[in-house]
Design a protein around this nucleic acid. Structure first.
Lengths: 197, 197
DNA sequence: TACCTTCTGGGAGTTACTCTCATTTTAGAG
DNA sequence: CTCTAAAATGAGAGTAACTCCCAGAAGGTA
């Protein structure tokens, strides 16, 4: 019944406008040198409205769009695989569900998040909260309680490896392997117990 | 020649006083409800002085005392071991160099850092910056360049596993295995490639 | 048209943090 | 002990992120 009404469309537009202007200003002047007031002025809203759309200045950059994707991919992974194989399968599937053009934006935001300490902290912390998201379904598949410490440790190790792989990729010139392959290689190394190192 | 002079001793005392009063107030009223002004007043210094000793309110709680310990232990580890075995050895040695009474304070600060989002983010981010610290000496031992991506991924995986193990330990009642054993078990699982899971 | 809900803007207030400058305190030399 | 240079402190003003509150505008409905 709901073709989203004018109200909803306007809100979407406002949100998008705030974010676009913010990222542009961050790129031009740097994150800390850009004030919320400037962003609000550029997006033609009041500072009050800015904080209604984003609870903090950091949230304009940092947001978890990948968690639901990963959760869905984990749920859809074929049965009968080990925990690490399941995760590898899900991560690859999740990456393939991404439109190819979206990568540039991800890279830009990622680089920003990497270079500004406050943003990096938030980003890494988000990953830490993803531990449950990964550990619970993997444990369930194995017939273990969803908060099984062993599976949480496994999830932590995989997230740590993936985080480093992504940061490594972001820190490079855009040649060489894409993020999907990097992450898969990292998980493969975990699966092998880093044998030979 | 240097029995630390009066000046240095006084500074140490001031620093300690600020931190003690801060942690007490945080425990009594909560982190966010405690203002820097209150801490400064309790420690009988001016707010200016507070910021001379701690660059931010967060830094009163979050600080890296373990990195140098771990670095030293890594340097002192016996040669001939694989990367993961070296790390396990170093971590255990590092823990054993801790006075046993220090644990309670670590636990208190750890619980605080775990429950306040801003502190948790800082804590986790600190761990992320430890990747180099671990990866470089391990890579060198293997005759690889210190920024070898494979060793950075290994370090990331180990840090992820250790972080989860510590958080798991902090979240529990103080029964059961201590932090050293937890971390060692986590690293053992990594070394085994989480076989059987 | 009239009404109700939701969104917006503006203003006042709090707090973390920075910078500057005058004053005090300490260390060491004569 | 005294004088001087260096270091530490305190006080004040200023900025920016955020919060709360309230009045008015815009969207949806009868």
């Amino acid at each position: 019944m709901n073709a989203p009404g004018l109200r909803e469309r306007k809100k979407q537009k406002t949100r998008w406008s705030i974010q676009e202007h913010a990222l542009r200003l961050f790129a031009e002047q740097g994150y800390e040198a850009t004030t919320v007031e400037q962003i609000a002025a550029a997006a033609e809203v009041s500072p009050s409205t800015f904080f209604r759309y984003f609870p903090s200045k950091e949230d304009v950059v940092v947001q978890d769009e990948y968690d639901p994707v990963l959760a869905a991919a984990l749920a859809a992974a074929p049965p009968g695989l080990g925990a690490l194989a399941t995760l590898r399968h899900a991560v690859l599937a999740g990456f393939q569900s991404f439109p190819p053009g979206a990568l540039e934006k991800v890279v830009e935001r990622g680089r920003l998040a990497l270079s500004v300490p406050a943003l990096r902290a938030r980003t890494v912390d988000n990953m830490a909260t993803t531990v449950d998201l990964i550990a619970a379904p993997l444990a369930r598949r194995a017939g273990r309680p969803p908060d099984d410490p062993a599976y949480r440790v496994l999830a932590g190790a995989c997230l740590g490896a993936m985080t480093v792989a992504i940061f490594e990729w972001l820190g490079e010139a855009p040649k060489g392997a894409g993020p999907g392959e990097r992450i898969d290689a990292a998980l493969a190394a975990v699966e092998a117990g880093f044998s030979g190192m």
